[in-house]
Write a protein that binds this DNA or RNA. Structure first.
Lengths: 206, 206
DNA sequence: AATGTTGTGTACCATTTGGTATGAAAAATA
DNA sequence: TATTTTTCATACCAAATGGTACACAACATT
């Protein structure tokens, strides 16, 4: 049951690339959600059969969680780079524009799998729903921390409630996810992002 | 196959109230989504058995659509009253505050079933997903029309793009739905709503 | 070449899925 | 009371669900 691709492997080697299979599974979960994605959907997209899936990933729930983990860390993610922007305003701008661009991108399912993967769901998905809620809260907390830092640096007024502002930013991004999965285009979402930025306490000049 | 409760009914009368059963079904769909709600979940919540459900509502998909129709028209809905507010700003304010209050209300599942009922879903739910997208678009169009009217009345500047502003408002409400279903409280969502209102082109005075 | 270890493919498992056939039960009408 | 019409309850259906047993295949080590 070794998931990692060890250099000196003993026994029959895997005939598939675990990472590639995980990406394929991610696409299925992304499009259909946890409840809507059946094992047949998953394994046929991954190009493997069920025993291989179970031995490599555990079960459907763990496969989902590992796919989400990959999603969080994938190189094209817009979140972490946005957090690193020099000013609070630029953080928000980069995040909203990144969300608009990324979520409307049709090289993969629209919207965000961390939002849509298990929103209203069966009891079987209750675990992954809780996990996704936790992840979303962590993102919000990271934004909040970044805004607290901005306040300490004088980049945001002391009067600003970093917690509320972070929640607002997160809320708009989540709305953008819904819009994207409903068919909104990148341009439309950029307009939304610009309107949302008008609420931002620090002006565009900063 | 008469759905309506006719006064002079011939044959054995229904042992259940169609409207009450529909409300129960709505709650299940609301909480679990179309894919996550099984017929067993539904019929046991409705207090009837499957043949009764099929004869009264058609099938799972039509039951869902009828439940959504009921949801749209239910008396406690905040959307239509908000549209009737006298100014564009008050429309937006009423809508956002109504969303914050309604979606965090724990007398029913959190969030909005028209958003979460079928977002990422299986092929079996593709039809209801499209229907929900259409409904959401109709809501947005109604807001847009209201803002166009506001422009004609001089209540909004001519420079405002009613379409973008409506989409922004809709986006924030959809984000609020996600937040609510993630456990956000009414107070938190009101704070979000107030931040969102800061983007509004017409000032609070209007 | 024999052995130990691990992955693969098939075929299978019990359970659940959405959906029905059928006969009995309850009412209005005749 | 007999008939007609409709609903109810049970039992059932084929297909799909998430998950596994098991024999075999492929590799490293001995």
């Amino acid at each position: 049951m070794s998931t990692a691709n060890c250099a000196t492997a003993i026994g029959r080697p895997r005939a598939f690339d675990v990472q590639v299979a995980l990406e394929k599974a991610l696409e299925v979960f992304w499009e259909k959600g946890f409840d809507g994605a059946s094992l047949s959907d998953l394994t046929s997209a991954m190009g493997i059969n069920k025993p291989s899936m179970y031995s490599a990933f555990g079960n459907k729930e763990q496969l989902f969680l590992k796919a989400i983990e990959f999603y969080k860390n994938r190189p094209c993610g817009f979140f972490k780079p946005a957090l690193g922007q020099p000013t609070a305003y630029k953080v928000a701008e980069s995040m909203l524009m990144g969300a608009a661009k990324s979520m409307a991108d049709n090289s993969h399912p629209q919207g965000c799998v961390m939002i849509q993967g298990a929103l209203s769901c069966s009891e079987a998905a209750a675990g992954v729903k809780e996990e996704l809620i936790k992840y979303r809260q962590q993102s919000e907390d990271q934004i909040k921390d970044r805004f607290e830092l901005a306040k300490a640096q004088g980049d945001l007024p002391e009067s600003v409630d970093a917690c509320n502002l972070a929640r607002y930013l997160n809320t708009v991004m989540q709305g953008i996810s819904i819009q994207a999965s409903s068919g909104a285009t990148e341009e439309q979402l950029i307009d939304v992002a610009n309107l949302a930025l008008a609420s931002f306490p620090a002006g565009k000049g900063q």
